[in-house]
Write a protein that binds this DNA or RNA. Structure first.
Length: 744
RNA sequence: GCACCUUUAGCUCAGUUGGUUAGAGCGUUCGAUUCACAUUCGAAAGGUCGCAGGUUCGAAUCCUGCAAGGUGCACCA
């Protein structure tokens, strides 16, 4: 068969992703089809169609796209494109996150590097202005990178955590929770970061293993041990287990005199089960102001709590001669003094322990007692209306009860299922949530004080009222994300149409941080679940299964992959072989392999078009003979299987199935077998083959589209207006909104 | 310490409620081809399904124990 002159020229060379992708992107963008309203207007979606909605987990404004984002975008876009083609009213809503602590610390670092100034030198307003400039500049980068993955997000609904509608939502949520008695102020021990001068949530703490000298000291008749002698000045309680026979002679509450760092003190014996008999001597002294465990012991027994270290890490007057010294400097000096006084028994130089650090770019955590705002997760309140199974409208309940009921009732399904256990374990152990932060960038606490009086309201209560200087934990606003992005607290049509959202797709590492808090907020404020299903994907690792990190130098940048192999290949490499919830090993070779596949699809099209155009026969519905009809049916059966896998979130199997069909069944067998007939002289047989090949090509393009939208759309755009050659007409201008194949 | 995940071909992984000779891709070896394919196609080799028990007519699949690797949570003064 001689090559046709009528083949679009592009098909005569290999598929060039770099050249096509920009073109296709602007085609999609100008079509407006990512917006469900446009789809209804243009008649591609029925007015009363079922809805399918996903809210994009907003990437940090200051970040750049990494493979984790790329995987998230690929997975969600596949689900979105699939449902859009199936005729759902489909919304994928984009946004970005201000990432309060991380962003502010970045700007502060730059400020110090460039001008040797701290935030206190330039003041709140100036710092916020600088942060604005910084975030506006980097926002554009992450948005552009997100688009290049082929994400069919509806940018007309774009939301930013710090924009005005979201700010209003956060303020409203705070006030409502306060009025229901769920938000309270209290002095509690919190994770204090002396470097960033703010509290840090439990989840944001990262424990790092460290080797330090371990000091054994004589404390009256007891031996105690510590890594941190600088906290020991105020220790006047000595704790042991009530069942520890070695210390049976001591009574709870008994007082003993002893010589300590700065002279004689009176210590009180406390018997508490928190003391571990197996560890060291089984005796410890406590520092309630700077240790969570010690604080709890002190509370149980009503003990005095004295602060020893201030917010910046400086010793207070209680430290006597060491007062005013930074703890780092003071430690060796204190050890030296104890040695002189004969209090130091021995030192274990190789003691390995975990040290709490702030994972958001901060320093070592120094627990402190602070006046903070809290959400009481176990406080009772009356829920006005509830659609959550097991929770009646008007009943008395708690936030943890709502969180439990939402998942336990099956109302929210977590995929893979075993994460439901992790979720419930987390909810069961939830402490009151400290929501105030002492940083400046963020949603400011809507509380006002005047002459010791306090009022909570969105607007200032009037003249002379001063607003609380704290801002809210970034997860407080993130918790509202599924509905604040849809217009809440206003009763918008978007909110009525798209909430609860269909699926929340995110990495499994973020389950407690975010997923649980969205369930909490949605249950309390909306009386409903935020999403029906939670799909958790795994982490993207390097070819050897290691975490990608700068220090290892094994980072694979998604944008490099897009440039070298195309966005389609990049997407496929992140989906095929990635089982739900399991980590994925990604190597450049994988991506390269899928680039070949994009080219294969390109060439299949070329062959089919050549076969059709050079030998056009009349098209009609009876043109297919039984043998070819069966092949088309086979493709439809495949479509059904692919749909089944997509419906159960097995994107890996769905993609693998189409990949295998297109390459090894359609190209290797069906096309190969058809060559003889196409070259032959029987017009009826030939026409049947042509029609069969064309129909299977169309089905293949549709099935491939969610996975590799660029190459398939590029092909679709080049398909000749087949009506003019009497072929089946192209049913829509864009493949993006073509109809998903149905079983026939 | 507690919980969870993983373990199937050299590598990366499928194997859905237990059911014939356990599959794919990459890689390897051999062959064909430049007739849609910056190539492609065909064929072959390669597995005691982590180990040990158990249930069953039948187990990669279910149960128990163990081992190795990984992750999360807790944490010790």
């Amino acid at each position: 068969m001689e090559p046709s002159k009528n083949i679009p020229e592009d098909f005569l060379k290999p598929y060039n992703s770099l050249e096509k992708e920009g073109e296709i992107l602007s085609l999609w963008e100008s079509s407006g089809y990512a917006n469900p309203d446009v789809c209804v207007e243009k008649g591609v979606t029925a007015v009363d169609a079922e809805t399918f909605s996903i809210v994009l987990p907003p990437p940090n404004v200051t970040g750049t796209l990494h493979m984790g984002h790329a995987a998230m975008l690929a997975i969600e876009d596949i689900l979105i494109r699939y449902h859009r083609m199936k005729g759902y009213k489909t919304l994928w809503l984009p946004g970005t996150d201000s990432a309060a602590i991380a962003t502010q610390s970045k700007v502060e670092e730059a400020l110090y590097k460039e001008e040797k100034k701290t935030r206190h030198d330039i003041g709140r307003e100036n710092l916020l202005a600088r942060i604005d400039i910084f975030t506006e500049a980097s926002k554009a980068i992450i948005i552009d990178q997100t688009k290049r993955m082929g994400s069919s997000l509806d940018w007309s609904r774009y939301a930013y955590t710090m924009d005005a509608p979201r700010y209003k939502a956060v303020m409203t949520a705070f006030v409502r929770m306060y009025e229901s008695g769920l938000i309270y102020r209290g002095d509690r021990i919190v994770n204090w970061d002396p470097k960033l001068q703010t509290t840090v949530s439990d989840e944001e703490i990262e424990y790092k293993e460290q080797t330090d000298p371990f000091f054994y000291m004589q404390y009256g008749p007891f031996q105690i041990a510590t890594v941190r002698p600088e906290t020991k000045f105020g220790d006047k309680y000595v704790v042991m287990h009530p069942d520890d026979e070695r210390y049976a002679q001591y009574e709870h509450g008994e007082q003993i005199e002893l010589e300590w760092i700065n002279g004689p003190i009176t210590a009180t014996i406390i018997k508490d089960e928190a003391a571990d008999m197996e560890f060291g001597s089984g005796v410890m002294t406590i520092t309630p102001a700077h240790s969570l465990v010690d604080f709890e012991i002190a509370q149980r027994h009503g003990l005095d709590i004295e602060q020893v270290i201030d917010d910046r890490g400086i010793l207070l007057p209680i430290a006597g001669e060491f007062a005013g010294t930074h703890i780092k400097k003071a430690r060796p000096m204190i050890v030296e003094k104890m040695k002189e006084k004969g209090l130091l028994v021995r030192v274990d130089e190789k003691y390995v322990h975990n040290v709490a650090t702030n994972s958001r770019g901060g320093g070592m955590i120094e627990p402190q007692i602070k006046r903070q705002w809290f959400v009481g997760v176990n406080r009772e309140f009356t829920i006005p209306h509830s659609k959550i199974p097991g929770i009646a409208s008007g009943s008395t309940t708690t936030l943890t009860a709502l969180m439990r009921a939402s998942v336990a009732s099956g109302s929210i399904q977590i995929v893979p299922e075993h994460f439901e256990k992790i979720y419930s374990h987390w909810v069961d152990n939830l402490h009151d949530w400290c929501i105030s932060r002492q940083i400046w960038f963020g949603h400011r606490v809507p509380a006002w004080t005047k002459d010791g009086e306090i009022k909570v309201s969105i607007e200032s209560p009037g003249e002379g009222w001063e607003q609380d200087s704290d801002t809210l934990d970034t997860w407080f606003s993130s918790g509202l994300w599924t509905f604040s992005t849809l217009g809440w607290p206003d009763d918008t049509s978007d909110l009525r149409t798209f909430h609860p959202t269909s699926v929340l797709e995110t990495g499994y590492d973020i389950l407690p941080f975010w997923v649980a808090r969205m369930i909490l907020m949605s249950a309390f404020l909306m009386g409903e679940i935020p999403f029906h299903q939670v799909y958790l994907h795994g982490m993207v690792r390097d070819g050897q299964g290691r975490k990608m990190s700068k220090s290892l130098g094994n980072i694979i940048n998604p944008l490099d992959m897009i440039e070298k192999y195309g966005a389609d290949a990049t997407r496929l490499s992140l989906v095929i072989g990635a089982q739900i919830g399991n980590d994925l090993k990604l190597s450049e070779d994988r991506v390269r392999g899928y680039k070949h596949f994009a080219n294969k699809v390109w060439n299949i099209t070329r062959f089919v078009l050549e076969s059709i155009e050079s030998r056009v026969g009349p098209w009609d519905s009876t043109v297919l003979n039984d043998e070819d009809e069966e092949k088309v049916r086979e493709a439809h059966r495949l479509a059904a299987d692919v749909s089944k896998h997509l419906d159960s979130f097995r994107l890996d199997l769905a993609a693998d199935l189409v990949y295998h069909f297109v390459w090894h069944r359609f190209a290797d067998e069906i096309i190969e077998e058809s060559k003889a007939v196409l070259k032959g002289n029987d017009p009826a047989l030939r026409t049947s083959k042509q029609r069969m090949l064309y129909e299977i090509l169309i089905i293949s393009l549709k099935l491939l589209h969610p996975f590799m939208p660029f190459v398939t759309e590029a092909i679709w755009q080049k398909l000749p207006a087949l009506s003019s050659v009497e072929g089946p007409e192209k049913e829509s201008d864009l493949l993006m909104v073509a109809k998903w194949p149905q079983l026939r």
